[in-house]
C-alpha cells in the first residue's frame, strides 16, 4: 500500500498535464510537468465532438511513454475494469478512472484493490471521495468541470470536500455516525478523518484550470497538486503557459512571483460559462 500510495506523494506540488501525442508530452516535460496524462482528445474536444469517449489506443500511450522520463497516466472509463487491466499491462504509472470518458457502468466503480497500479478518481464532495478511497483509490482529484477552462466548479468541489473535513474534526462521536450516513461514506474512514483532520490520500485539483492564478487558487484552497487538461494545449501559446502554471503551483503563496509569471502568456482557452452547459453534458455528474 505504501508503494501504491507513495507515488502520489511524489507528485505533490506539481502539475499533471493532459497530452494527446509525444510532441505535446515533450513540451509538458520541458515545462516541468511532474507527470503527463495520455489521452486521445483533451476534454474540450471530447465535449465538442460528443459520442462515446473511451480508453486511448495503446500505441499512442506507448509513444508517449517512450517520449518522456516522467510518470505517464492514462484514463479508463468508470467501471471499465478491462480497460484498466489493459492499461496496467501497458505499464502506465497511474490510472485515472475518469468521468471525462463515457461511463461503462452506471452503478459500480472499478475494484481498485485488484490492481498493483495506483488509481486516481474524481470527486465532487467528501462522500464521493471516501467511497472512492474505500474502493482503493490512492489519490483523489476534485472534479471541477473538465474542458471548460472555468475554475468555478473546481472551487465548489474543493470547498465542499475541505469544508466538510474541517467540520468533521469538530464533530463528537455520535455526530460521526450521522456524518457517515449523510455522506454515504464508510464510517471507519469518517472516524479516521475526525482524528487526523485530513483525507487518507493526497487531494489534487482538476477541471477548469486555465491560468497560473487558477492553479495558485486551487493550491491556496488546499489542493496538493493540480491537473491541467485543455487549459494548456487549447491556449494560444502552450509552452510558456505550461511553464508559468508550473511556477505558479510551486510559488502559490508568493503574489510577486505569480504576477511575474502571469505576464504576456497570450490568450488562455476561451472557456465556457456553466449555464451554457446543460445538465446532461456535465462530466462531474458522472460517478456514483
Amino acid at each position: 500500500m505504501q508503494v501504491k500510495r507513495g507515488l502520489a506523494e511524489m507528485m505533490k506540488g506539481g502539475v499533471i498535464m493532459d497530452v494527446v501525442n509525444a510532441e505535446q508530452a515533450k513540451i509538458a516535460e520541458d515545462a516541468g510537468a511532474c507527470a503527463v496524462m495520455a489521452l486521445e482528445r483533451v476534454p474540450a474536444d471530447i465535449r465538442r465532438d460528443g459520442g462515446v469517449a473511451r480508453m486511448s489506443d495503446p500505441e499512442m500511450i506507448e509513444g508517449i511513454k517512450a517520449a518522456v522520463t516522467i510518470p505517464v497516466m492514462a484514463k479508463a472509463r468508470i467501471g471499465h475494469f478491462v480497460e484498466a487491466q489493459i492499461l496496467q499491462a501497458l505499464g502506465v504509472d497511474y490510472i485515472d478512472e475518469s468521468e471525462v470518458l463515457t461511463p461503462a457502468d452506471e452503478t459500480h466503480h472499478i475494484d481498485k484493490f485488484a490492481f498493483t497500479v495506483p488509481f486516481v478518481c474524481g470527486a465532487t464532495n467528501l462522500g464521493e471521495a471516501l467511497r472512492r478511497i474505500g474502493e482503493g483509490a490512492c489519490m483523489i482529484r476534485s472534479k471541477g468541470e473538465a474542458g471548460t477552462g472555468n475554475i468555478v466548479e473546481a472551487v465548489r468541489h474543493l470547498r465542499s470536500i475541505l469544508g466538510d473535513i474541517r467540520k468533521i474534526t469538530q464533530a463528537d462521536n455520535a455526530e460521526l455516525f450521522q456524518w457517515a450516513k449523510s455522506l454515504q461514506a464508510p464510517l471507519p474512514l469518517v472516524q479516521e478523518i475526525a482524528e487526523t483532520g485530513r483525507l487518507q490520500v493526497p487531494l489534487f485539483c482538476a477541471g477548469g484550470i486555465a491560468t497560473p492564478a487558477d492553479a495558485a487558487l486551487a493550491m491556496q484552497l488546499g489542493a496538493e497538486a493540480v491537473f491541467v487538461g485543455s487549459g494548456i494545449f487549447k491556449s494560444d501559446d502552450p509552452s510558456p503557459r505550461a511553464k508559468a502554471i508550473v511556477e505558479a503551483t510551486t510559488h502559490f503563496r508568493d503574489a510577486d512571483i505569480l504576477a511575474k509569471v502571469s505576464r504576456g502568456l497570450g490568450a488562455p482557452m476561451t472557456g465556457i460559462a456553466m449555464d451554457e452547459i446543460n445538465q446532461t453534458q456535465r462530466f462531474a455528474e458522472r460517478g456514483w
Partner: peptide, 11 residues
C-alpha cells in the same frame, strides 16, 4: 525530497 528531478531541476 523525492518527486520529479526534471521538474525540480527546472524550478
Amino acid at each position: 525530497p523525492g518527486g520529479e528531478s526534471t521538474t525540480m531541476s527546472r524550478l
